[in-house]
């Protein structure tokens, strides 16, 4: 962890005493994510049913694929009728669509946003780029395999996939959730060190806490 952006600094308080502020520790929670135990099976099934029918997408278009999400809100596709909604804040969202290629720079933001979502949370990889880099397979600056960095629940292939594919992807995700297999958040917590190592490998200027609560 390099602290270039947040160097420790001396501060003089109003009472004249000087002390050191270490932003990374003082400003950010340092806890690691924990694996969440599920409730009793019946309740969990009920919850999963509700979760599947209430997919709130965080409003963050990470790449060109984001353009394909817009039509979903139009009368032609109208994703709302499937319980899909868009939220402006990751705090209230449970679905993160990585829409297309993900540059290293954006990855950093994507990680933050993902970590700020509350579990259970799901990631959809949209388009080929999230699977193998797609047309950016030899780019120095894009992520080739999304699931090295974030736990992906489902991919939607294509370049670009049509909105219909997206709707289909949602339906697939719903099935996964209903089956109780969408455990991305727990996976992330379990293999936290592995994910972090992968992330830090390509993000050179890592200037945030390990887990952005």
């Amino acid at each position: 962890m390099t602290d270039k952006k947040y160097p420790s600094h001396e501060v003089t308080g109003p009472d004249g005493k000087t002390f050191t502020v270490t932003p990374m520790e003082d400003y950010y929670c340092q806890e690691r994510p924990q694996v969440q135990k599920s409730a009793n099976a019946v309740v969990e099934k009920f919850f999963n049913w509700a979760r599947a029918n209430s997919l709130w997408i965080v409003g963050f278009g990470t790449g060109c694929g984001a353009i394909e999400m817009r039509p979903l809100r139009t009368p032609r596709f109208d994703a709302y009728r499937y319980g899909i909604n868009w939220r402006a804040t990751p705090r209230q969202s449970n679905l993160f669509i990585i829409s297309g290629y993900l540059s290293v720079k954006t990855l950093k933001r994507a990680i933050r946003v993902y970590e700020q979502m509350q579990g259970p949370k799901y990631v959809l990889g949209l388009g080929s780029c999230t699977i193998n880099g797609g047309m950016y397979w030899d780019s120095y600056n894009t992520v080739k395999r999304l699931d090295y960095y974030l736990p992906v629940d489902a991919y939607i292939t294509g370049c670009m996939p049509r909105p219909e594919s997206l709707l289909d992807g949602f339906e697939e995700l719903k099935k996964i959730i209903m089956a109780g297999e969408a455990n991305g958040a727990n996976l992330y917590a379990e293999k936290f060190d592995w994910y972090k190592a992968n992330q830090k490998k390509i993000i050179k200027n890592w200037d945030m806490p390990d887990y952005s609560w």
């Binding site: 400003y27 950010y28 929670c29 804040t89 994507a110 933050r112 946003v113 700020q116 945030m208 609560w213």
Partner: peptide
């Protein structure tokens, strides 16, 4: 989880 002052959603950025 008790978080600290910069643990806020800042449009994917950090304050």
């Amino acid at each position: 989880v008790k978080v600290k002052q910069f643990n806020i959603f800042y449009s994917g950025e950090a304050p």
